[in-house]
Design a protein around this nucleic acid. Structure first.
Ligand SMILES: [Zn+2]
Ligand SMILES: [Zn+2]
Ligand SMILES: [Zn+2]
Ligand SMILES: [Zn+2]
Lengths: 154, 154
DNA sequence: CGTCAATTGAGACACAGTCTCGACAAGCGG
DNA sequence: CCGCTTGTCGAGACTGTGTCTCAATTGACG
């Protein structure tokens, strides 16, 4: 396993480029927030990032973090998900193809999963109710491999 | 089509009974909130109910509405869903079997849809990532039949 | 470099949802 | 039918999330 920074599918550079290509300027704040997100593992919160920033003594306004989360969500670099308790969180998206997220209810770690034909299925379901489907959201919650092992010890 | 009050699967009486059977007392506030919910069509908000109550000059505290929404969600009479814009809403559940909701992005009307084998599919998907699935959430957003007709006029 | 619009951080704000608390009343057993 | 017990109530304080405004700053481009 390599350090998170060495990941190539979502390196600092790749993300920065994507942001720039989308017509946004590259600023210190944006670079910092991208770093904060890249060093996160699993689902995170706006308040997680704010705490991380404070811990690292970065000068990044709260509002800027919210703004950047919006930008990255629009670019598809992260996705807004809703934890079972109703809290809003984000997960990093590794691929760019349509997919969904599987989140560990214990440690918040997350994996991307293929849509696996669900997209077609739900369009058909909607159609049979007379709706024209625009968008679907599928979120999976369970226990990740490493948390399963840990609970066996108990 | 009958008036919403005449619906038998979720009449005032059925819901009240369910609440009572679950060990909760039947109070004026609870009856009132059940009524408010039953006269709602489609996805609604805590603030919708609060506004409805105020409009009808009912004396029901804000906190009580939140508390009752929790109770009804636990009983499976309503489900918490997340609109695409991130807002928390609720929809009434008509059946008691496992199902999902289809919400019109234009008028908020909602329909229940069968799970249609998705439950099994997602368990398998999670398994192949090594997770033990606990819970899944599927939300469908589209345009309902009546809003489709209306947009054609434009 | 100089220009200029995009972006920033600070802080006020709007609002959802929670909590506490004394008053009240549902439901039960007598 | 009447009290008792205890769950529930409404009011209002409180917490935390997310938005907005605004003056100051700073990227990007030439
Ligand atoms: Zn885990
Ligand atoms: Zn999908
Ligand atoms: Zn509609
Ligand atoms: Zn399902």
């Amino acid at each position: 396993m390599q350090s998170p920074e060495a990941d190539q599918s979502h390196s600092r550079a790749t993300l920065t480029l994507a942001v720039s290509r989308a017509g946004f300027r590259i600023t210190d704040a944006r670079r910092a927030i991208i770093d904060l997100i890249l060093t996160r593992d699993g689902a995170f919160d706006s308040s997680d990032l704010i705490a991380d920033a404070r811990r690292r003594k970065l000068v990044v306004g709260r509002a800027t973090i919210f703004r950047m989360l919006d930008v990255l969500a629009d670019l598809g670099a992260i996705e807004r998900i809703d934890l079972p308790n109703g809290a809003h969180s984000y997960v990093r998206c590794l691929g760019s193809r349509h997919h969904h997220h599987l989140v560990c209810t214990n440690c918040q770690r997350s994996s991307d999963v293929e849509d696996g034909g669900i997209a077609d299925l739900v369009v058909a379901m909607a159609q049979s109710a007379g709706y024209v489907l625009e968008h679907h959201r599928l979120e999976l919650f369970g226990i990740c491999p490493s948390c399963q092992g840990r609970s066996r010890d108990k």
